[in-house]
């Protein structure tokens, strides 16, 4: 097994295990945010517009963490290791 095969095997493991971890945390966080927003909206239906806007901003900020993990995975997938590419 040369360095390329080792690199790609490790990369498959890293992406396949790393992205679900990020998605797991993001799912829990977004679920909690939506739960809070829903409770607030059920208690005060007249404030639902403001709550919805704040909830969307919060969801975007939470989601961006998963997106960072995804971008890192893409960089790993397509850039590779420069020193390996020269050979």
């Amino acid at each position: 097994m040369g360095p390329h095969e080792l690199y790609y095997a490790a990369m498959a493991l890293a992406i396949g295990l790393g992205l679900p971890v990020a998605a797991f945390g993001c799912g829990i966080g977004q679920g909690m945010a939506i739960k809070g927003a829903m409770e607030g909206m059920a208690r005060q239906p007249e404030a639902s517009g403001k709550i919805q806007t704040a909830m969307l901003i919060g969801l975007a900020l939470i989601e961006s963490l998963t997106i960072y993990a995804f971008v890192v995975a893409l960089i790993m997938l397509f850039m590779g290791i420069p020193s390996l590419k020269i050979k």
């Binding site: 975007a60 989601e63 961006s64 997106i67 960072y68 995804f70 971008v71 893409l74």
Partner: peptide, 13 residues
């Protein structure tokens, strides 16, 4: 950076 990554990552993904 976060604005870029959010839009790009979502649509590309």
């Amino acid at each position: 950076i976060s604005l870029t990554c959010r839009l790009y990552g979502n649509i590309y993904g």
